[in-house]
């Protein structure tokens, strides 16, 4: 038990520390695929370091919500990261692993980000907040249904129990899981602000969603928000890798099992990064009012998955 707590703690630190690396890797892969010369894998760390050393500037009538939000958002993301099974399924005592709670915590961080965006009173902030909440409105019910299907299979809403269940029963080829997996991928894309829902590399204010909200942030505040966004991406990809792909985690605490798990997870993450990059290179960003179609499809796929589970059991 004690060792599981220690390992969970280490694993959380690993997720937080490696998130910029993973995003840097995606960027590098994308450049290679598009025949551009790529920045180093460690570029994101350099960006963060630069932002941490820059002066923080704040608009004149920003209230405490604007100043406070980055710390809260970063902490919430760290808290969620502590519940994510990367190499081992985390201990309940360190991570709050309830899936409904995880959705709720993401909601809390989104709530404060949207409030911070509205705080300055520029149009961009309002636009970003409005769009972010709209996309969330469509993605969140689908995410909940995806979690519900998993929870009903494992008859538990605890992520650690679900992971253990999946490692005991290899279910990835189950039709219900297949539907939910496709839908989960769409939801993850929408929630982490990637193409085709949002373009993280855009410089046009009018097409931004996430970037429009954080337009007023600078220096350390911006660094914390960017880092939190990177952790969020890694969280979603890890969840997808460990819940829906074949070769689930081996539920043992021995070093060899953890080594094997680590190797498999790294392979899966590289594979998923490649798939993400491929999709981002081939797809164009959707018009805002096309996004509902995509996310409604995700919702219906989740519902089909759930229906299939109900029928077959």
């Amino acid at each position: 038990m004690m060792s599981r707590i220690v390992y969970s703690f280490l694993q959380t630190s690993l997720i937080i520390a490696c998130a910029p690396l993973f995003v840097g890797f995606i960027k590098m892969l994308k450049c290679w695929l598009q025949n551009r010369s790529a920045p180093s894998v460690f570029q994101r760390y350099r960006d963060l370091r630069k932002l941490f050393h820059k002066q923080t500037i704040i608009a004149h009538h920003a209230s405490w919500i604007f100043r406070f939000a980055p710390y809260l958002i970063f902490s919430i993301t760290v808290l969620i990261a502590s519940a994510i099974p990367l190499i081992i399924s985390p201990s309940k005592t360190i991570g709050f692993t309830d899936v409904i709670l995880i959705a709720g915590l993401f909601g809390l961080s989104r709530f404060f980000l949207a409030l911070a965006a509205l705080d300055i009173g520029t149009s961009f902030g309002g636009m970003g907040a409005s769009r972010e909440m709209t996309v969330a409105t469509l993605a969140e019910p689908a995410l909940m249904i995806a979690f519900f299907s998993l929870a009903m299979m494992a008859s538990s809403t605890r992520l650690d129990v679900i992971t253990t269940y999946l490692s005991a029963h290899s279910l990835w080829f189950n039709p219900s899981m297949l539907f939910v997996a496709i839908a989960f991928a769409m939801i993850a894309v929408a929630e982490t602000g990637r193409i085709p829902v949002d373009n993280p590399a855009t410089h046009l204010e009018l097409t931004m969603i996430h970037e429009a909200m954080i337009l007023e942030y600078s220096g350390r505040h911006l660094a914390l928000i960017e880092w939190a966004a990177q952790i969020k991406l890694l969280i979603y990809i890890t969840l997808f890798a460990n819940l829906f792909l074949p070769f689930p985690l081996i539920n043992q605490l021995s070093l060899s099992a953890m080594g094997l798990n680590g190797g498999i997870v790294i392979m899966k993450l590289l594979l998923l990064a490649f798939v993400l990059v491929l999709a981002e290179t081939h797809l164009a960003k959707l018009r805002l009012f096309r996004v509902p179609l995509l996310l409604n499809m995700a919702f219906l796929l989740c519902l089909l998955g759930l229906l299939m589970h109900v029928i077959t059991n």
Partner: peptide
């Protein structure tokens, strides 16, 4: 779940319009 997130949207709007900006 949809209701919950719509309520959050609504209160981002309400709070933003009354107190922020």
């Amino acid at each position: 779940a949809l209701t919950g997130i719509l309520a959050a949207t609504c209160f981002v709007k309400t709070y933003g319009m009354i107190f922020l900006g």
